[in-house]
Amino acid sequence: MKTEKAIFACGCFWGVQHQMERATGVIRTTAGYIGGHKENPTYPEVKAHTTGHAEAVLVEYDAEQTTYTDLCKLFFEIHDPAQTDGQGPDIGPQYRSEIFYLNDEQKQEAEKVIQILRDKGYEVNTQLTPATTFWPAEEYHQHYYDKTGGEPYCHIRVKKF
């Protein structure tokens, strides 16, 4: 097994985690915070817009079963990349659409996927940002929908690929 990591932010991390952890080849997911200036932020701090962090999901996957490109495509299918500062009912900069790339190869792959979408006429406002420290969210946020039995608002609405 060849384990790789990816970090995606596109709305509330509960739904993103729920969708990503069901993808082929995904080994583990962790909800958390990234992209801000405060070490070890808490949910109330991120929600209050005092840290600059986005709610995001760290995805660990088996690169022999899936690809970074496939995960990027899923990322774009479970949210509206045209929407800025939020997704659906979740409004605020912590819910922005952003890919935190871990190396130049991931950046290039994400750029290719974005270009495919733009060539198909989709508006994409997703930011591409070098990954900084990923801070795991509090335990009560991990695998939220599995714990509560609820359903996320983010789901594959339109097959874009």
Rank of each mutant, 00 (worst) to 15 (best):
H143F: 14
Y95I: 09
L128F: 04
Y140A: 07
V113F: 08
G36Y: 02
E77G: 09
I114P: 02
E21K: 14
Y43K: 10
G52Q: 07
H53W: 12
L128Y: 03
N103I: 00
Y140V: 11
L128W: 04
A63V: 07
G36E: 09
I91A: 01
G32F: 02
T132C: 09
Y95F: 15
L74R: 02
Y144T: 09
G32K: 08
L58A: 07
Q142W: 04
V16M: 12
I34Y: 05
K47R: 13
K120I: 01
Q142Y: 05
R22I: 11
T84W: 00
G52Y: 09
R96L: 08
Q17N: 11
G121Q: 01
T67Y: 10
T126I: 09
D119T: 10
D104R: 06
T30V: 15
K2A: 13
G121N: 04
E139N: 12
Y144H: 13
C12F: 09
Q106L: 00
N40V: 03
W14A: 08
L102I: 05
Q127C: 11
T126R: 03
Y140P: 04
D104L: 05
A56W: 02
E123G: 14
E4T: 03
T67S: 15
F75H: 09
Y61N: 04
F100M: 11
K5N: 14
A31P: 02
K120A: 14
R157A: 14
A56P: 06
V16T: 15
E39I: 12
R22K: 15
V59G: 03
K107M: 11
K2T: 15
E77S: 12
C72M: 09
C10G: 15
E151R: 15
D62G: 10
P136K: 03
D104A: 12
I91C: 02
K120L: 06
D104Y: 01
T69P: 00
E21W: 08
D90Q: 10
V16Y: 07
V57P: 05
I114S: 03
A9P: 07
F76W: 03
A6G: 00
Q65A: 14
A56K: 02
G52D: 12
K5Y: 09
P136R: 03
E139M: 12
H141Q: 00
